[in-house]
Design a protein around this nucleic acid. Structure first.
Lengths: 221, 221, 221, 221
DNA sequence: TATGAATGAGAATTCATTCAT
DNA sequence: TATGAATGAATTCTCATTCAT
């Protein structure tokens, strides 16, 4: 009987996670299509086929629902990026891994890109409360890690001696710009093509001849 | 008497322009700080020290007030950019002029940067109405002009043969990224420093040896 | 010099009366077309080519302006009706004169008919204040006079012995109904035709054989 | 369980109908007392003891709430009148049935009389929108049916050969006038008394000797 | 004196949140 | 436990009235 109850509880939890996911997905869909302020809780409830009250069981307010969506991508991205930057390999490889991780996360969460991006660039739907602080901080942290990798690469003579923080931001914004191009027209630039463009535009200028050897050897693979 | 009336009318018009400017400035301040949807017309009236009714004398709706703000920077930027790209000079010089023009416009309209940027990147405060269509179109038009200059430069062998449109977007996003850095910390990057970073990161990789001669000669000036 | 000043004052008064009339006419036009609540003081000012302030010189509020319009027809009608009923002649002649007077007043103030009528039938734009009390009272007074004439006519055996007040109301509403027909389609019923209809429908049933002699003799004229 | 749910749904619907009726009644009360434009949605909410939002659950706008009120009487009257005119019997009987139907409907909806009447006489509270078009059309349709009955009666020699449309309007306005008398002083004229007055004033003059036989036989019943 | 810009109270409507069932 | 009806504060916008010029 104990067993039975446990299983029941598990199933319950399982079900709740599923409901939560469903609501999040539906809300994301609506927010990304019409904008936070043009979506009502009733809209979300309708779309998700739950009652408003049920949504409030999972999220204590509309803001929290929004935050949960952002946190979702935000955390996925942070985890993937951190893993990429912490992995084995030289600085160039780490940065490429970072780019690929970001590409992977955002391409499979395309609906959330613009929202994430608005948050991290200070165009939050809600400037008043500091809801997005966490996300911004996470993103800043990632940029710092990326900058550290650049710094190490500069130290080793792979990259020209430029401000690592600026390099990190430059690379980040470039990657994002190409992601937006893809968002507007999915066919226009595959992940591989984007990466290639970044190599040609960014790394060609930023890397030293010694760094470019990594580039060649990487391509050789 | 005729003269008097004329003068009076002029003064009246003068005053109206001033009021309009005041309202726009106050609204921009609030919108940029708290976001469109978190600012009420009463807030704006309060801040601008006018009655709501007065604001409606100048702008027929909240949306139009917002549009006026965006149009303002948007048009300034478009005009400056178009002038820069159309001016005399080689492709490299044109692009530099474009960057300088953008820098000038946005640094003197810093409050509007995030709004402009949200609009042009599809994170409009109001996804529903196509208020920002015009601004987006204008921005796209500018990117196309920039791309054309890149294409010409590639033709002449100044730049490596990369997709001009992507080059244009890459440069634009880079410039914007550095603008944001400046926005967060004004001291961190002057216009000149930003330009230098862009040269080192972007042009170093994108330009051919033959193109780099322009670079040197330009610096020589 | 005294003379001159007098003349000047007279001219001034003359002009003011003219302005007042112009404003009243323009306001009536707008009220009758769009309804009291859908016409703003600015609309009236615009149409009358005066400044709002000027209108307030003549009428202390929008309500008073409205009241002035109603009073205007109301008084004209009351005066004409009273004169008709007080004139020489037998009861039948008086009533016919009353109908003709009303017809004359309303046909030359067609714009005001619906407004007058709304007021006197308790559908005032403004039920709250008793602005229309005066008009209603005047109208009731007229109906009472008309009823008195009917009573006299009954006494003399011209009319069947019916409640004079009801006869008065019946005749009044009949005349009004035909007036409305004319209002909707001016060609459909001239004043003469209307009167004829009233004779055939109303008087034919209401008059005694002795009364009908008046009718014949009147027609004989 | 199925049964329970059904019952619950029924009760719910029942309750909603009741609420709707309550709101309509309260709104009618206020509109008829103070006029459409002098009653705010908050007033109605207050009076009906619901929140404004609740009212908007039932009526999507103030205009629609008003329309619902008018439609209500309008449809009742139209249905009753149409039935009366279509029923078995000679022309005189039909017309009497029509008058009785109208009397019944309006005496049990006395609050709505003035509103209905304002609408059908072109003194709508809102001249701008054509909200009342439908009501006006319905009323005109009814007058046309009534006119047709008069025409048939004339054909058969019951009524004097007068314009049937004018006869219809005359009768309608007479009935309305007496209804207004009753509205102002309920004791003054019962339905039966009103009908008698109409017979004496209207039918006595309008009917031919042959028609009057119907009258006598009808009274004989 | 005539003007019309400025005012701000007031109106309709929306929607996040609650809570009885 | 899940529901969704009810709530009412907050928002956008209008317009009668005032008063400095």
């Amino acid at each position: 009987m104990m067993e039975l109850t446990k299983k029941r509880l598990q199933r319950r939890e399982e079900q709740q996670r599923r409901q939560r996911r469903e609501i999040l997905a539906e809300a994301l869909e609506l927010f990304s299509r019409r904008g936070y302020h043009n979506v009502s809780m009733n809209d979300i409830a309708q779309e998700a086929a739950y009652a408003v009250g049920t949504i409030y069981k999972f999220f204590s307010s509309k803001e929290e629902l929004y935050r949960a969506i952002i946190s979702d991508v935000s955390e996925q991205f942070a985890a993937a990026a951190a893993a990429a930057l912490a992995a084995e390999g030289n600085e160039y490889e780490k940065i490429i891994a970072y780019l690929q991780a970001g590409s992977r996360v955002f391409r499979s969460n395309s609906k959330a890109v613009r929202l994430y991006f608005a948050e991290t660039h200070g165009v939050s739907f809600n400037f008043r409360t500091g809801l997005d602080r966490e996300t911004v901080a996470m993103h800043e942290q990632m940029l710092a890690s990326l900058a550290a990798v650049f710094a190490a690469g500069i130290e080793k003579g792979f990259f020209h001696p430029l401000d690592p923080e600026m390099l990190a931001r430059a690379l980040d914004s470039l990657a994002l710009a190409f992601l937006f191009v893809w968002l507007d027209d999915t066919r226009k630039c595959s992940a591989a093509e984007n990466l290639e463009m970044i190599e040609k535009i960014f790394f060609r200028g930023v890397m030293t001849p010694s760094g470019k050897k990594l580039l060649l050897s990487a391509e050789g693979r």
